[in-house]
């Protein structure tokens, strides 16, 4: 019973081969991250967010619409990302919008960095309408946006404004919240 395990007896060899394996895998992982562009990652994030968010009942019309404001190129990328994908039983549709257009029939609204100073106005328009707003602006969440995307250490991270989500009657899964770099609640900011 107490005899040493095979790996204990051959610890050195095993350790060596282990290190080699890890190094190789890590290299592969980094290469993958570098090969995918920032936009691609953001598109994937946008799609993945839909899996962790519950919309109010009246918004359960299908398909799930993702609107993109101010970045047609990103919209085209998004089309590729969501092509053929489903969330639950719903299909996904994306459309490119201008700030002036009607935004109410969207489920997700991506506000690109190009929108710039018009962002607060847009957020004000969709506030409380059950739309998940995702933006690239640095102060997107503090301005009332729900999820703000940022690049930190060459990695795409996101922050969540739970207060804004509540106002929009959206429920965000704790699975997603735990990944957020910071979460804004009613009065305080929970930082990771």
């Amino acid at each position: 019973m107490n005899k040493p395990k095979w790996w204990q007896r051959h610890m050195f060899q095993v350790m060596l081969s282990c290190v080699c394996a890890l190094t190789l895998n890590g290299t592969h992982s980094v290469a993958l991250a570098q090969s995918a562009s920032e936009a691609e990652v953001k598109a994937a994030f946008l799609y993945n967010f839909t899996k962790f968010v519950d919309w109010p009942i009246e918004q359960h019309s299908r398909p799930l619409v993702i609107g993109v404001i101010g970045d047609e190129h990103f919209e085209k990328l998004l089309v590729q990302t969501i092509a053929g994908e489903r969330v639950g039983s719903r299909t996904l549709v994306s459309k490119s919008l201008t700030p002036e257009e009607e935004l109410g029939d969207c489920h997700v609204l991506f506000v690109s960095a190009a929108v710039g100073s018009e962002t607060p106005a847009i957020l004000a328009r969709v506030r409380g309408k059950g739309i998940l707003t995702v933006g690239e602006a640095e102060d997107f969440t503090t301005a009332g946006g729900i999820i703000g995307l940022r690049v930190i250490d060459r990695k795409v991270r996101f922050s969540v404004n739970l207060n804004a989500a509540r106002i929009s009657e959206l429920t965000i899964s704790s699975q997603l919240l735990k990944l957020a770099s910071d979460v804004l609640t009613a009065g305080n900011v929970k930082a990771r």
Partner: peptide, 14 residues
């Protein structure tokens, strides 16, 4: 491999 977590002292091959 995405992440690999192992017991302290364990050095077996991944």
């Amino acid at each position: 491999i995405f992440v690999d977590d192992r017991r302290v002292g364990d050095s077996s091959e991944a």
